[in-house]
Design a protein around this nucleic acid. Sequence first.
DNA 1: CTTCTATGTCATGCT
DNA 2: TCAGCATGACATAGA
Length: 685
Amino acid sequence: MKYLKPWWSDGGGLLHLTILLSLAGLRLDLDLDLDLYLLLPPPTLLWDELLLAGGRTSSAYALSPFPAWGGWGRAEQLHPKGREPDPAADPEGRLLREVRALGVPFIPRTRVDAWLVHSVVAGDADGAHGLLGAPAAASSAGGVGSSLEDSSQAAPGDGGDPRAAASSPSAAGEEEKAPAESTAQVLEAGGRANQENEVLRERHEAMCHNSQNEENEQRVSSAQEKSLQQKNEDESKIADKPDWEAEKTTQSRNERSLNVTETAFSLDDFSQMLLSQPENSLEGISLGDIFPGSINDGMNSSTCNINFSQAISHDVNLHDAMLLCPDNTFRREPTARTSQPEEPFLQSNSHITNPEQTLPGTHLTGFLPLVGNQTRNLSQDLLHDLDISIFDETNLMSLATEGFDSMEVSQLFEELDSDSGLSLNSSNSTSVTKYNSSCSMCEGGATGYSDLEGAVGGYYPDPSKLCHVGRRNDSAFHGDLAFQHIQHNHTYHVEPGALDSTPTSFSQHGKSQKISKHLNDTDRNLSRDERRAKALHIPFSVDEIVRMPVESFNNMLSRHYLTDLQVSLMRGIRRRGKNKVAAQNCRKRKLDIILNLEDDLCNLQAKKEILKRERAQYNKAITTMKQKLHHLYHSIFSRLRDDDGRPVNPNHYVLECSQDGSVLIVPKELVTSGHKKENRKGKRK
DNA sequence: CTTCTATGTCATGCT
DNA sequence: TCAGCATGACATAGA
């Protein structure tokens, strides 16, 4: 699997984000020619894949208006090279069938997109192959100055259908493609295929009801599973390593993905070029203009009843764009839908919308002109997660939605941190509701924003800084943080009144309470620092903060946009964590010392017992020897006679052994006097 | 309610 | 000077 180069991760996050956003408006405004269907992979896969691709900030990605971009990196997954094109078998509808089979939504994109896809995702180093049929597909899509008819000439193996070329794996991987053409050509070709778009759209609609997609579904789903498995293996490999240890792996992956981009034109070059376009050219084109049929079709056939004409009449940013389709993403209960007017979405989210963030002409909902009901449902489910994660991550990083609840933070720090000196003035905090329903979550996010500024000194990260914030290369963080908050933070601390407002919330109230209880239990299991970090939305785990080398830690602090409070907390977490480990080691050592001393004591006691036994044995032997000597002494004296033949009294005489071995009988008086003389001599010496 | 144990944290000194 | 380590002392939760 090849990955999109993490082109915003190689420094200059602000610039890249700017490029990204600018590109967003331009891409949509360049949607004048709808002759290509760009594959949009399942959002969850996309998310994970982007995490794998570069380990860049989740917030940056959350702001990315192009979830489809990640799909470009999935070229080989979506289109295994082993599949041969079959131009004869309904080439015009093959792409649509395959797209349906993939269970992913697809959307008409620009000629530029087609060309870009080739440039970025071209499988071979020479850029001759790519997801969407490479330059042939691009050119066939009209992106490089060719018409639909030209495409068959440019890519003879793709069956002459640009969509077939776009979707055909072998077309993407095996055929000779024309070299990428210049950017000027791409832009120049941008205005040609309006008429073609309508034809393609009709074909698309017709193919939505094609019943021959089951085989493709199985085939592609197996391919997806395989790719997912491979991806999970990669993730697990990385997840087993700490961030700083996984850097090399990620870097190597990035290097690999870099090879993917070694085509005639890079994304950065292209984005720079796009930036040079007049800004007013980016405005004034609504989604309805771009997708006149697909939007209505998608809206009619799906459960989403959003008035897109109204929605896209606003200048909306990513938040707005996502929230504009709440039924697709957040709310799925029709009853709840009817009770919630649309306008509050726009109004409420305008609170959290920095005017500078607004993307003129960025109508992201247009990314999902859905195909079939099955595909649509699947994509909605997947996108539901993605959208929540994106939105939540965005607000997470900006400490907005439920995040940075000043009440919570202050309580945490007042409750827990009387010793650390970290406390927050909660006087200006207001009750911030954490919502269960996603709709309410949006409003909660807005409230959280306004709350935040007063509570914690207005931590209001610029999106460009957000891009800077999340520059982390461990995928675990993104996944954990993003989905953890999806699962956790929007479901507890729920105000009953907010929940009772809608039937949906009412029906989910019991479940929410269960989840809330569970999450509160989960929170209760967290350590103090973990709760603090969670309250302040420290984008790193406590374990990482503690275990990270000091150099990486300092680099991290310098590279990320963190408030003083967050930095202080992180340093405290690190200090306490280090000290905690040190204390544990110290106690272990102390325990080991005690155990060793106890062992030594036992050993010494055993030795003492042995010595005592030996001593007793020696004493016993000495006693025996004395007794034997005594008996021998008396036996000898009993046999001795003096000159008169009388027995020698052993009290007056002693036996004395001379040096030559002879035994003499010496009177005790001489012996005692001799001893005295020797003693005197010894003393004189 | 008291006691004991485990653990976290802080202060301090040292490297 | 800073970061980390070692350790005594204290606080606290839980058995």
